[in-house]
Structures are given as structure tokens and as C-alpha cells.
């Protein structure tokens, strides 16, 4: 049994907005094991990106997080700015959504890739281009891309460049937020392959995505978030063979490969604190007691599910 690299316990994250409190993450407890790929899937607004941001310490000012998120035993919630600066980039790597807006258009790609390493004095300024070239090749881009600016790259190239930026300091943990969003099939495949290469090299990856197919292809473990709660967590094989939570079942049924059956109904509101299982209004098996369900159950070792059925 590998030790968890990231351990989350009862993590709650809410936002103080002009319209009142918004509940992004509620009572999430789960672990990420080292050298694995954990895919956190869910629809937009399920809270998965927020969770990723929390691990990076990049929550906005109006966010309030409670609970515990540890990285290699170090408690992340409540770290000072200084402490965060020490570990970001080196221990934790982040590849944001929207590569077009996540790459500063004022600098060339090689600068963006190498600057962290130069700042931490791992390489010298004059080695910038070579360093960048190596990383670019790693993600499948030609070395010459280093001299380009972000706005000169296509969507797929930019996404890969962004990955190259994220791994500049070779962090053990990599968080990828929607890396294949909006990409055509060819680029999709390239990114998927890049992720698998990275996993193969020993990086621990938290892959945040709404693309269940991608999760199936690259993940070792699946987390399903719905309505701010972690409704299911299982090893990949188990999950895709026998999804336990009705929402997970619905998700899989909606996959193109399985028939594209949509789930009827609407997602719960952001501003309403979830009581019990958030899927209750859309679940075909819902009963009154579902409203009070607070703790997940563990039907087998390594699986958890928030459902009265199990």
C-alpha cells in the first residue's frame, strides 16, 4: 500500500459572494497516492477546479477553506505566502485551463518555461533556450516553439507548451485542470499521451476533467464530484466496471461510447448548502433519508460512495 501523497480530510470550501455564501466543496475526504493518476471528474460547477486550486493555495480572497489538506504530511491549509512560495512549482505543479490566457503574451515561450528554474538558480540564464528545448521536445513540440509567443501558437500547441511550463521544476505532484478542453481529436491524443508519459516518469497527477473518456484512458483512480460533494471514489477498473453511485452510473451512460444518454434534471444551486446527497432531486432511487445522508460508506477497500444503496 503506497502512502498518500495528498491527504484530504473533511475539506469544505465556500465563497463569500455578493449574493451570499457559495458552497464549492463540502466534506471531501480522500487521498491521492504517490505515482498515480487521479482523475477528478464532474460537471462544471461541481467544485473540482476549486479543489485543485485549494491544493495549490490559489484560492481567491473571498474563499474560506476548512478541514485538512496535507501534502507529504505538510498541512497546506493555512500556509503563509512565504511558505507557499517555497513549495509551489517545486513540489506542486499547476497547468491551468485556457492555455491562451494562461501564458503571458509578453514573454516568449522559452522564457516562460525556464524562468522558474532560473529564479531558483537551477539553471543559468544562458542555458534558457536549451532547457526550454528539452522540455518542449518532451511534450512533443518542436524546439523552435521556444522562440514563439503564446498568441502565435494553436490551441493544442499552447496546451502542450503550458504543460512544459508546469513541469519546469519537475514537481512530484502535477495538477492538470481540463487539459483537453476544446481540443480536436489529434491534439487530444497528443495531450493524453503526454499525460501518460508524465505518469510513466513518476509524477503524481491530479487530472481535473469533465471528460470521462479521458479519465478512463489515463487514470488509476477516479473521484466523482457532484454538487460540491465527493459522491464516489474508486480505482479505475472497479469504477468503470461497476459504478456504484447513481450519478456515476448516469455519467457513464451519458458517454458517447455507451450511448450518450443524458441525465434528466438540473444541477443543484451553488448557493444552497448541500444537505445529504446532492443528487437526491434527480436520483431515481431517492428516498427521504437521502436528505440526511452525511457520511460516505466504504463498500470495499479503496472505494467510497455517498449513497444509501451501498
Amino acid at each position: 500500500m503506497t502512502t498518500p501523497l495528498v491527504a484530504m480530510h473533511d475539506v469544505n470550501i465556500r465563497f463569500n459572494t455578493t449574493r451570499g455564501w457559495g458552497y464549492a466543496v463540502t466534506a471531501v475526504s480522500a487521498d491521492v497516492r504517490a505515482n498515480t493518476v487521479t482523475a477528478i471528474i464532474g460537471e462544471s460547477g461541481s467544485g473540482k477546479s476549486v479543489l485543485g486550486a485549494a491544493v495549490m493555495g490559489l484560492l481567491p480572497n473571498n474563499a474560506e477553506a476548512s478541514g485538512s489538506i496535507t501534502y507529504a504530511g505538510l498541512e497546506l491549509l493555512g500556509l503563509t505566502d512565504r511558505e507557499w512560495d517555497q513549495i509551489r512549482g517545486i513540489e506542486l505543479g499547476w497547468v491551468a485551463q485556457n492555455p491562451a490566457s494562461s501564458l503571458n503574451p509578453v514573454y516568449r515561450i522559452d522564457e516562460l518555461i525556464s524562468e522558474a528554474a532560473i529564479h531558483r538558480r537551477r539553471i543559468r540564464r544562458r542555458d534558457k533556450r536549451r532547457f526550454a528545448a528539452d522540455l518542449l521536445t518532451k511534450v512533443g513540440l518542436p524546439a523552435a516553439t521556444g522562440r514563439n509567443y503564446s498568441f502565435e501558437l494553436s490551441g493544442g500547441m499552447a496546451q502542450r507548451a503550458l504543460i512544459a511550463v508546469g513541469i519546469g521544476l519537475d514537481p512530484p505532484l502535477l495538477i492538470l485542470d481540463e487539459p483537453t478542453k476544446g481540443l480536436d481529436p489529434a491534439n487530444y491524443d497528443r495531450i493524453r499521451d503526454a499525460i501518460m508519459d508524465l505518469a510513466g516518469e513518476g509524477h503524481t497527477i491530479m487530472l481535473i476533467t469533465h471528460d470521462v473518456t479521458l479519465a478512463e484512458q489515463v487514470a488509476d483512480e477516479i473521484w466523482v464530484l457532484y454538487g460540491s460533494r465527493l459522491v464516489e471514489q474508486a480505482p479505475k477498473q472497479d469504477f468503470f466496471a461497476t459504478p456504484l453511485h447513481p450519478y456515476s452510473q448516469g455519467l457513464l451512460a451519458a458517454m458517447p461510447s455507451r450511448g450518450l444518454h443524458p441525465i434528466p434534471g438540473e444541477s443543484p444551486s451553488f448557493f444552497v448548502p448541500p444537505e445529504g446527497c446532492p443528487f437526491v432531486d434527480r436520483c431515481p432511487y431517492a428516498v427521504a433519508a437521502c436528505h440526511e445522508l452525511k457520511t460516505p460508506s466504504h463498500p470495499t477497500e479503496g472505494r467510497s460512495v455517498l449513497c444509501l444503496l451501498h
Binding site: 495549490m56 490559489l58 505566502d81 512565504r82 507557499w84 512560495d85 517555497q86 513549495i87 509551489r88 512549482g89 517545486i90 506542486l92 505543479g93 499547476w94 491551468a96 485551463q97 485556457n98 490566457s101 494562461s102 501564458l103 503571458n104 503574451p105 509578453v106 524562468e115 522558474a116 529564479h119 531558483r120 503550458l162 511550463v165 508546469g166 519546469g168 521544476l169
Partner: peptide
């Protein structure tokens, strides 16, 4: 508030450094 600034901070740059190097030119 931009995403490229976030990404800069994600690399471990202290706020001030990122402010001068990434925010200021824009």
C-alpha cells in the same frame, strides 16, 4: 486577476516578483 498571473504564482514566484515581472508589463 488574470490567469497568466495565477500561472506565474503557481510556479512559486512570490507575489511581488510576479507583480513586477508578469503584471507590470501588461
Amino acid at each position: 486577476g488574470t490567469e497568466y498571473f495565477q500561472s506565474a504564482r503557481a510556479k512559486g514566484f512570490p507575489f511581488r516578483f510576479a507583480a513586477v515581472k508578469h503584471a507590470l508589463p501588461n
